[in-house]
Design a protein around this nucleic acid. Sequence first.
DNA 1: GGGAGTCGGTGCGCTAACAAACATAAAGCG
DNA 2: CGCTTTATGTTTGTTAGCGCACCGACTCCC
Lengths: 237, 237
Amino acid sequence: MSPSPQQNHLLAALPDEVQQRLFPYLKPVTLPLGKVLYESGEIQHQVFFPTDAIVSLLNVTENGASAEISVVGNDGLIGVSLFMGGESTPSRALVQSAGSALQLSARRLKEEFDRHGDLLLLLLRYTQSLITQMAQTAVCNRHHTIDQQLCRWLLLSLDRLPGNQLIMTQELIANMLGVRREGVTTAAGKLQKLGVIEYHRGHISVLDRPRLETLCCECYAVVKKETDRLLPWHPNK
Amino acid sequence: MSPSPQQNHLLAALPDEVQQRLFPYLKPVTLPLGKVLYESGEIQHQVFFPTDAIVSLLNVTENGASAEISVVGNDGLIGVSLFMGGESTPSRALVQSAGSALQLSARRLKEEFDRHGDLLLLLLRYTQSLITQMAQTAVCNRHHTIDQQLCRWLLLSLDRLPGNQLIMTQELIANMLGVRREGVTTAAGKLQKLGVIEYHRGHISVLDRPRLETLCCECYAVVKKETDRLLPWHPNK
DNA sequence: GGGAGTCGGTGCGCTAACAAACATAAAGCG
DNA sequence: CGCTTTATGTTTGTTAGCGCACCGACTCCC
């Protein structure tokens, strides 16, 4: 069953005319957990529009420590630097939740981008929402506890998934947040004790999302609000 | 003495034709220390091209804590969201080092941007370099010590100033880094003991820049390298 | 059904950074 | 000059998160 372009908000938001030009070139791909779409500094030849996968952008330090700087799901695309002009970035794009995406060659994307029409406007606004997310991540890393950050991370992921289930080990979450696995264990333990989530060997179920939002720092809300403002999303297009 | 547009790298990098269209509309302004160019969420009506001022982009949390997410000097402009399409951002733009800038109305900037010529390409590349800086700031906030971050911050500021002097209290630096003033005092004390800087009531002189770079985390180098790649700067244009 | 590997939970010592209070001293100003 | 303000230095707890070690328990797979 091939993923539909309409599942990706950016693709769905394009006018018919652009869709007709672009969609024939979209190639469905499946993204397994842990796959690296781009390595830091690598020239990028494709962009990816997730339909139900989630991809994290990570910056990795010299000594191997990492930190997630943004999360991309069916609300966005991977490969911003292609149209921004750099062709590569110092970040790694890592599949955080397995699923599908639609792949488009750099050439086709740039062709359409260079028409300076709706695609350009849309992608620039999307890029601004990414910037917002990165900025807020920086603040969150500075000022908020692991407990709060875990909540933020769960909410960001949940927004990009169909159900209320995450397939994700604590080890992986720790890598994303750039903290120790034990730190995540402790934080997740608290949430479980509160009945907010249920943890079971790599399967997280969020039982009480409203509660999760109250436990979270403001960072989630800030990003969400700004993203909604920049990219109003009407599923019933 | 009015600041010359050629002092700003972005303006200087524009082809003559664009310069002739744009430069007549540039208005010199002086930016005093502490001035707020944009408040979070505020609609922006101007962009600023610093010639010798330095402006910090800060995100502020609910409880008043703040964190700098990027630094802009004569290498860039303030007001990226204007051409990205959002018209505002959740960040505050605060003058960190007094000086001059050239101001341009949103209308004129967008007019030129919408020609989809060299200005568009240049500004998008600049935006990507900003993204790099933000991403690296997020990592740095997560993984590096105050000592290291102070070095990074000094180097970033130094690159945007003519001499080796900074006018800047520890209190202000602490606000930028999002740490306590005492933390900066301790870190700066170490640097002074090592003879790398000299501190004197709001005046910092960097005595041994090479040493400063060795004490710094990799973050400075990562950002510098990527920025140089994205925006090769030839003063002898 | 019985290992091997994976995942999560726990305890302990350690350090960086925080919080709050206080000391000092230079700069500025009447 | 003497007083106030501002900038920096210092001290004494306290705490969040780290590093490390280890254990138990679930899963997978032969």
